[in-house]
Design a protein around this nucleic acid. Structure first.
Lengths: 182, 182
DNA sequence: TATGAATGTTTTGATTTCTAAGGACCTCAT
DNA sequence: ATGAGGTCCTTAGAAATCAAAACATTCATA
């Protein structure tokens, strides 16, 4: 309780024209989340690994042994969630956990041989069809998808300092700040 | 730090240039899902309603009394998921369930008065900040976001119905999914 | 040395989410 | 009418997901 006392439900009305898009965006997001989940279950049936599990394993290959907390931040999951995922992977002997000697609070997570092998022969974590279609698009299109998603992340994620001008956030007005890369 | 992931296109094995975008897209999607989930928990703490619950309630206002299955398809959730959500809403007396008289398999779900009232004073299911920023964008920007998300949905969703031009040409058949004759 | 703040992980408790299986009910041939 | 096969909903079982609480450990400092 406390923190921000509910200073009365926000107006909630007043979505004049933005409203239509907002509804549609919400619907699309829901469908995307669902499609990802369904694909995850498909992978699980087929290869006995879910998408989050696969993502964690891949990250371990990419960055080498790591701690749960570190891994969590790399894959954008909470520490608690990663603990659960690691439990299941450990039970199947795909990763191992060891308490570090220097700082015994830390746990070092690393791939076992069979974990390494399995991960390497697993397919890409998102839909094969999606990847295929993405690859079939003109580069420009892929770039727009990438940019738009980053923009959504930017509009959605809560971050500490949050008082910047809303005016030109986007690839439409001008090149905008970061995001560029290339 | 904001959203600016230091995205140099990753040198993922194989994937050439589509790979870089694919990695980045996967990351962004994960972050979006997380942001939505976190907002849902925030709403839950603040108003005691999660996003899926709110979405179901809003849909009931929008379309009037409905059956669980119907509701599920409107909000893009499985029937089982909606059953669970309705259980919690019913326990709080925000909706009620009645078996239909003509066809007793069906259940009619409708809002109670307090459900109606509560739903109407709840805020928009997605981040206030997101909605605000969306509204602050030029119309074309919103439109592009909407279009891109729809495109992603289209690339991701598995729709097995809709006559695929499969016309058995042999080579494809053994791989072909369970299209048809289920 | 003791003690409290900080850090890192796991546990707890709740919800969401799905598929698959179970139960109730309807329809339509036979 | 009667049973087979659908349709609709709920239950079962499992994973993911988070915040918050509980543990374990380190570190600074009185």
């Amino acid at each position: 309780m406390t923190s921000t006392t509910p200073e009365k439900p926000t107006p909630s009305r007043g979505r004049s024209d933005a409203g239509a898009y907002a509804e549609s965006i919400l619907r699309s997001l829901r469908r995307i989340i669902r499609a990802i989940d369904q694909h995850s279950r498909h992978l699980s049936r087929e290869f006995n690994l879910t998408v989050p599990q696969l993502v964690c394993l891949r990250q371990l290959i990419l960055s080498g042994p790591s701690t749960p907390g570190n891994l969590a931040s790399k894959v954008y999951l909470s520490q608690a969630t990663v603990t659960g995922i690691l439990d299941r992977l450990e039970a199947r002997n795909l990763i191992k956990r060891e308490r570090s000697s220097p700082d015994r609070r830390r746990v070092t997570v690393s791939l076992t041989d069979s974990g390494q092998r399995l991960t390497e022969e697993m397919p890409w974590p998102l839909q094969e069809r999606f990847a295929t279609r993405l690859a079939a698009m003109p580069m420009e299109g892929r770039q727009v998808i990438d940019q738009v998603l980053k923009q959504i992340v930017d509009m959605m994620e809560v971050r500490e300092l949050d008082a910047w001008p809303i005016v030109g956030s986007g690839i439409w007005n001008d090149e905008a700040e970061q995001v560029g890369s290339g």
